[in-house]
Write a protein that binds this DNA or RNA. Structure first.
Lengths: 207, 207
DNA sequence: TTTTTATTCCAGTATTCCATGGAATACTGG
DNA sequence: CCAGTATTCCATGGAATACTGGAATAAAAA
């Protein structure tokens, strides 16, 4: 193999991984899976895509060995093929955030419109706040921020009473583009709690 | 802005950064710039692309704020816009390497065909080897591996005499797909030295 | 001011990618 | 074996991307 051919083929292959993340739907699917395995219907629902399209994109990701599939009874469950993919997704977010003013602006504007303040927990005494994971319980079990408790966003109504009104509630969900924590923060503040959203990007490990 | 619109726009923007790396030519341009600023003609030559195509891709990268341009006399010099891009490129390589058997196979086969052995310097006593940077001097000055000396690959002939035949020569260049170190290792071994290629992925910081 | 050099832009062509609807397939359960 | 459910595959049309040659532009140099 000539040097030029070697280099060409190498870049072709490496760039194909980047290309996989270059479609917004596939990127979202990867990030949903970073938070834990899901079946096709769950992914379809969370990403608000058609079933055919969801499956099409999953085949592309599978072909590139970024995800793995496993049948459990009548459902096919997908999961990330390797934990380095989480590091890659994080690095992509970090660069996109630093370089794209429009992205920063879009998120800042949305958070402001929603009235969601943010907190950096490293700056807070541990006794002053509660870290609240508002993702579905199965994702919490799969991996969560150390010290976090779990109240799935759709169970907040009945579980809110568990929370200490004397402490700041710092909520997080699946990442910067996930709005579950925004909803929860809004509901908690309306109920007389002091709640904000976690400032750091959180992306979980796979099993 | 509705939540669904917010999420859509967010993924559109973030995936555009991945899409930028999704073309093998643009990926190569980014990696060349990770090793130091270069003008359009230098990039064209190293990447073996047409001038028009090189410039086209640089415009795309500039638009996404991944690179910055600056005129110096009659030449336009490009450089990476931020150091996080190097981390992103590294993360992409790591994932591609772990997931794509074909990539590993392609590189392994090329290195074997070239007869290039590899060494992990962490496993060697510091007194037993010389770390040799074979990139152009301007790239060495821009940033290099700690403890490395520089002999640009095209000056090996007259500079080889500086090297200690009693030590193992561990050469590196711009990364896994760069073949400068393979050439140098081959020439050194033919001249009676003991030379190998550095095993780790090396990607340099920008200024 | 004119010429030269380096680079970018434009329009056309070819190729690749994406989403869709419907058909096909791969299972499980009875 | 059949029915039901979940998922994948196929062919299509349209959108997006990539590359090219030549023109245009933006400087520096004479």
């Amino acid at each position: 193999m000539k040097k030029v051919e070697f280099k060409s083929k190498g870049y072709e292959l490496i760039s194909s991984v980047a290309k996989a993340m270059g479609n917004p739907h596939r990127l979202e699917l990867l990030e949903l899976l970073a938070n834990g395995p899901k079946n096709v219907e769950e992914l379809r629902r969370e990403a608000r895509m058609t079933l055919t399209n969801t499956s099409n994109h999953l085949q592309i990701l599978k072909q590139l060995k970024l995800v793995k599939a496993r049948r459990q009874f009548t459902s096919i469950y997908y999961r990330l093929a390797d934990e380095t993919i989480i590091s890659l997704l994080k690095a992509l977010h970090i660069t996109a955030f630093r370089q794209l003013v429009e992205l920063k602006h879009t998120i800042g504007q949305f958070r402001q419109q929603y009235g969601t303040d943010r907190a950096v927990i490293a700056e807070l005494p541990a006794t002053d706040y509660i870290l609240l994971d508002v993702r579905p319980a199965v994702e919490y079990r799969h991996g969560h921020h150390r010290g976090a408790i779990n109240i799935p966003h759709n169970q907040l109504g009945k579980s809110m009473v568990q929370l200490d009104k004397g402490k700041l509630i710092v909520a997080y969900c699946r990442g910067e583009l996930c709005t579950l924590a925004d909803e929860v923060v809004q509901q908690l503040n309306a109920a007389g709690f002091r709640a904000v959203r976690l400032a750091e990007v959180v992306m979980m490990k796979s099993a």
